[in-house]
Simulated assay, not measured.
Amino acid sequence: MIDLDIRQLQSFLVVAAELNITRASARLHLSQQTLSTQIQQLERALAVTLLVRTSRGVLLTPAGEELARGGNAVVADLGALTERVQAADRGNLGKLQLAVCPYATSLFATEVADAMEAAVPGLEVDLTTVHTPPAERELLLSGEADAAFIWLPLGDDRFQHAVVRTDPRVVALSPKHPLAEQESVTLADLADEPVLRPDIYLSEENLRHWMADPRPDGTAAQRGPEVEKVEDALMMVARRKGVWLAPEPLSRWIPATAVVWRTVTDAEPSELALVWTDRAPAQLIARMIAEVRTIIGQSEPALV
């Protein structure tokens, strides 16, 4: 069996990402000579050439490409194993507390929990249901939850997040509204409609996104009355007191027999993210992001 040094593999993966020894050494806080030596040692251990230098940096060989593809998974799995071993030493194989809003996550939350427990032996995933994003935020800040699914933007730099799905925007209308006869609407169609504001928004930035404010022509959206619950907003919609904009999945899961939903063709899409704090176990969060994206069939590259 080939004896691989995990530090050499990690260094190679940084070089593979940067395709530049100078930038990679700066990220790793190593001298260029030390980094080059690590790569050479890794090449000798594998008996292959992993990269070649060029005037602009380095290029990966086919062997290097293959190692880069599989190496990140190896490092992630080793990190997860390390966490499980340490948890076992503490007499606790691990528990992950996940806060969810039923309407936002009912399509996949239980699947994610089951997939995580299958992928990480000994892990227990607890789902805690709350009814609003501010309640999710409070669980995260208090440490009662490790992660939560929340619609962006957060408007709060205390959290990290990774987008896991993107959905079009819809508007709730009274069945008696003239626009209800159309299959879809535009924001210009809604220019004179007050947008109702249930108490679910995390910040002014979050509220403005949900209201599509400003509109594409630069005008401000009309702010309708504030209400306590989404259900209150929908009742007011039914009574022609305003409209409510939401991500499309909510139209399928919020009980709303008295309203109709129409796609808003020119509204920016809504992004659902896995959100966590610095206290959350990083390796488990990384695994959960991968599991969620696999389950719902979407992929987003960035962690923010």
Score class of each variant (00 low, 15 high):
I254G: 03
G218M: 08
P175R: 00
A145T: 09
H209S: 05
L173R: 01
I200P: 08
E138D: 13
L127A: 08
G224Q: 01
E138T: 14
L202W: 04
M235F: 08
Q182W: 02
V227G: 05
V237A: 04
E231Y: 05
E138K: 14
E193T: 12
V227D: 06
A233N: 05
R252F: 05
G122D: 02
R239I: 00
T263V: 08
V264C: 02
A145W: 13
R239S: 06
R215M: 13
A212W: 01
P214G: 05
A145Y: 09
L234V: 05
S174A: 13
K241F: 04
A220H: 15
D167Y: 11
V260Q: 05
P198Q: 06
R262C: 10
P216I: 10
V170R: 12
V164T: 07
L123M: 11
E144I: 01
H161L: 02
A162T: 10
K241S: 07
L187V: 14
N206H: 15
L196D: 14
I254K: 02
G242A: 03
A162H: 14
A220K: 14
G143A: 02
D126E: 03
L190V: 00
A180P: 12
L207A: 14
S203D: 02
D192A: 14
K176M: 15
A147V: 06
P153L: 08
S203Q: 09
R169Q: 15
I200V: 15
L207T: 10
H161E: 03
P194Y: 01
R169L: 13
V195K: 08
F159V: 02
G218Y: 00
T129E: 04
V171S: 08
V227H: 00
E138S: 15
T257S: 15
R197C: 07
Q160T: 07
E181N: 14
P255R: 04
L152I: 04
T128S: 12
L234Q: 03
R240L: 14
P178G: 11
